[in-house]
Simulated scan of single mutants.
Amino acid sequence: MQTVYVNGDYLPKDEAKISVFDRAFLFADAVYEVTSVIGGKLVDFAGHMARLHRSLGELDIEPPVSDDEMLDIHRRLVAENAIEEGMIYLQVTRGTADRDFLFPEKDVRPNLVLFAQAKSLIDNPFVERGQKIVSMEDLRWRRCDIKTTQLLYASWAKSLAHADGADDAWLVRDGFITEGTSNNAYIVKEDGTIVTRQLSEDVLSGITRSAVLECARQLQMKVEERPFTVEEAKAAAEAFSTSASSFVNPVVEIDGSTIGNGAPGPVARRLREIYLEKSRAAAI
């Protein structure tokens, strides 16, 4: 039986309940994080907590528990659900209040929900075959740097991509790729330079993004943080995406155009290898 956490209680999933007046349900007034689990340990937990605090601060939501308590909750869910490889999802909502567009008064307490998912993360078919991507207009709200639960457009775009025979969509605003539906996007130039969009309100500051770029710099790979176009991606030597649940995934096609030689490239492969090596060593 799957065990979940709701506001201090560890419950079977069928007994876990949140009010219909919770503001996440009514307004997507909530933030979340997803921490990967490898070998029964948490990957980059401190990075996820730092981003969680930033998201909460931007929306003026109080942290419901301390970081030490949050770590204990994560570890207990890993143990009780016997997660060797997978993810822990956490969501903090502004709380439960009568439906009103105005934020409720400060005495409303945030709601905290966590659950575990067993999932094969390392044995990923995209590593060998690469992803096929379609470009799509980025119509999300303009604070993409806050990791909120406003995911309808991203979910819609990914679903449309799948219906079109692709694996995912890369979103485009003002002629430039921002990011994927649930990942950061990269291209590799002919000279080996890695290009990815600089951090701003247009993209999420990916925890895996930060770690992978640090790996690249340690490997003395050149990195340019700037916008790039769909045409630039089509002409690139290779391309890839990063996220907490997929690590580094090569991209071999965009809008029907083959990228490079149509196979996962050496830069993406090497970055995935070194990222996993470092993540296993640092997991807690």
Rank of each mutant, 00 (worst) to 15 (best):
W170K: 04
A16G: 12
D14P: 07
A157D: 05
W156Y: 09
M49C: 13
L90K: 13
R23L: 04
A30T: 13
V108P: 00
E69I: 11
S120Q: 14
Y32H: 14
A82C: 02
L112H: 01
A236R: 09
V267T: 14
A169C: 02
V37H: 07
I254E: 01
T35A: 03
T208H: 05
P12M: 02
A30K: 03
I254V: 15
S279D: 04
E84F: 07
S241K: 08
Q117K: 11
S205D: 13
S19P: 12
N183W: 05
I284M: 10
Y10Q: 02
K147L: 07
L171P: 00
T96M: 11
T96N: 06
M221T: 11
D68E: 15
D60I: 15
D164S: 14
D9L: 09
L102P: 00
P125S: 05
R143V: 03
P266S: 12
E179W: 01
F21A: 06
I122G: 00
R23K: 04
R142I: 12
S182Q: 08
I38A: 01
S205Q: 14
D9H: 05
D202H: 13
R75D: 01
K106L: 12
P12L: 10
V78Y: 07
M1R: 15
A169V: 10
M49E: 10
S246Y: 06
L152K: 08
G8T: 00
R270D: 10
R143L: 12
S155G: 10
Q218G: 12
V172K: 03
G180D: 05
E33K: 04
V108E: 00
L204Y: 02
C215L: 12
C215V: 15
V188R: 01
D14T: 13
S200H: 08
L59R: 01
D145P: 11
R270L: 14
S135F: 04
I122L: 10
V252L: 04
E277C: 05
F176P: 02
L56N: 03
I61H: 00
D255Y: 13
D68Y: 04
V248E: 03
E232S: 01
Y32W: 14
V37D: 03
L52K: 09
L171Y: 06
N111T: 10
E128Y: 06
K13T: 11
N249I: 14
P12H: 03
M70C: 11
G130I: 01
F27V: 11
E201A: 11
Q91D: 08
F27I: 09
N183C: 15
R23H: 05
A79N: 10
N7R: 07
A281P: 07
Y275V: 13
L151R: 05
D14E: 15
G39L: 09
G180A: 11
S55Q: 12
L171F: 08
E253N: 12
V203K: 02
F115R: 13
P266C: 10
R272M: 10
S200K: 14
E128T: 15
Y5D: 04
K17C: 09
P63K: 14
I146G: 10
A97C: 07
E231M: 11
A211T: 12
M136H: 02
H74I: 05
T242A: 03
H74N: 08
